[in-house]
């Protein structure tokens, strides 16, 4: 089973990229594309929360 998994691991570009800089690029871009939507949605949600609470305070 371990021997079978080696092939799968090498098929993953993050695990087995040709060069160190390329591997770092895969890792950083995977993180960026994973966190970008969460950061955007979180930022908009926080802005809506701030806007809603400030408008409540004005009433």
């Amino acid at each position: 089973m371990v021997l079978a998994l080696v092939g799968a691991a090498w098929a993953c570009p993050v695990c087995g990229a040709p060069g160190a800089s390329n591997e770092a690029a895969y890792v950083s871009m995977t993180a960026m594309l994973s966190l970008l939507p969460l950061a955007f949605i979180g930022g908009v949600a926080y802005w809506v929360y701030r806007t809603a609470t400030s408008s409540d305070g004005e009433r």
Binding site: N22, A25, F40
Partner: peptide
């Protein structure tokens, strides 16, 4: 939001190619 992910994909492809 959709545009952000689109440009994120372009930048990602560029960065990985550049790393080669």
């Amino acid at each position: 939001f959709t545009e952000l992910m689109f440009f994120g994909g372009l930048v990602s492809a560029h960065t990985i190619t550049r790393g080669l």
